[in-house]
Design a protein around this nucleic acid. Structure first.
Lengths: 225, 225
DNA sequence: CATCAGATATAATCGCTGTCAACATTACCA
DNA sequence: TGGTAATGTTGACAGCGATTATATCTGATG
């Protein structure tokens, strides 16, 4: 209960001119702001003010506002990949893809603004953010691996090449997640959106399976988030 | 050298104080700006400046910036519904849903920023924009009608109730479109994104059909946009 | 230990934005 | 004709991202 200020501070010797850990603290505070405000509401000046540093200090660590957002999004991918591990370890391809989708949706719901940064149109073109680009590719490869596994085990129908079908799976998952976020209140009068999301995921993945009836009977495995 | 002060000159009868058609002109110019800039770049002041009116004049017609964007999005839906008519007139349910999806994707590509306004997280909560909310519902009902038709003609598998399956179709379509917009350059190194979108749509809709093999052989009907 | 380059923070400023309150002009209807 | 509502203007406020020039600190090198 020593308060939440002693990160690297206290210790009488520390000078105040150089903050010492500004970059990290900016990222943390930015995320905190992002949680209960939108991306547009986030302001570098406000962050600096709140940390107690001049309003231009952040520019020493981030070229501009988008650079900070990109760093946040990259961190978001890092966490997302951790969440995905469970689905990667699932040997059964159809269930693995379903778990991936469930993780995706859950992540989108839990870290909505982060999700928008990671997958939305804010940080574009991606060529300006090489790390983000790489992270996105990595995510695709995970799906691709799942589809490939499904091919080999004869669980996924070979309707097209791996890349195309992986794109299809991704689109399904992405659609369910974004529709939930962006049109949740258009649908969600008196509906259970989480349940609906899972239903939609199951239907779409089942449609790509060799035995479509099977996945709808698969156990309800909870992805850890 | 007459300077730029002669505001009240020209055309003796027409007064310049009252513009007369400001609301409409704001909308038109805003859309023009939206086409080659993002939503964030659009500025009420710039619009006013360009039209030649004071910078607060727009506020007589729109409560704030978002109100103008909402009006734009509503108009976007109106146009989208026109585009959808063709798919509604297609009697065969699976093909109708496919056509709907193709129109959706094409609209997203042609009117990207408009699409983001209509389906993105900018104008939320939807309860603040009743017209937009209504337009979104109307779109859902169109899909619902298509699914219902598919049930009756035994073309769509009855995996769940109409509402759930319509949601699934919508998610599929929405996912393909948004993935194309927001991650086009993540994928689209050397791929034909339009072709990929259509492939994905076909696969997913086929997965919901009683005879999945059939839709992939359906003719390539061009939706009018 | 001295010192100096590079990293880090500051101050002052520019131009832009959305928005508001007070005021001016016009249109229109009783 | 007169008065009210609609429409547009002026001027101002606070906030923002970003740039430039300057101040302060750190740490490695001699």
């Amino acid at each position: 209960m020593t308060g939440e200020l002693n990160m690297t501070t206290d210790t009488s010797t520390t000078t105040n001119y150089h903050h010492g850990n500004l970059r990290q603290e900016l990222l943390e505070l930015a995320e905190k702001h992002l949680i209960n405000s939108g991306i547009a509401e986030l302001s570098l000046r406000a962050l600096a003010r709140e940390i107690g540093v001049s309003q231009t200090a952040p520019y020493r660590h981030f070229k501009d506002k988008n650079a900070l957002l990109a760093a946040l999004a990259t961190e978001g991918f890092r966490r997302f990949f951790i969440i995905c591990e469970e689905s990667e370890n699932e040997p059964r391809a159809d269930l693995s893809l379903l778990l991936f989708g469930l993780s995706y949706v859950k992540f989108a719901k839990l870290h909505t603004e982060m999700f928008h940064l990671m997958f939305g149109p804010v940080l574009q073109p991606r060529s300006d953010y090489p790390e983000l680009f790489a992270a996105g590719r990595e995510a695709i490869y995970k799906v691709r691996a799942g589809v490939e596994r499904g091919f080999k085990t004869d669980v996924i129908r070979q309707l097209d090449d791996v890349a195309s079908m992986a794109h299809t799976v991704w689109a399904a998952v992405h659609g369910v997640a974004t529709l939930m976020l962006d049109h949740g209140d258009t649908y969600g009068y008196h509906r259970d959106l989480d349940l609906q999301a899972e239903k939609s995921l199951r239907m779409m993945i089942a449609g790509l399976c060799t035995d479509p009836t099977e996945i709808s009977q698969l156990p309800q495995a909870k992805p850890a988030v």
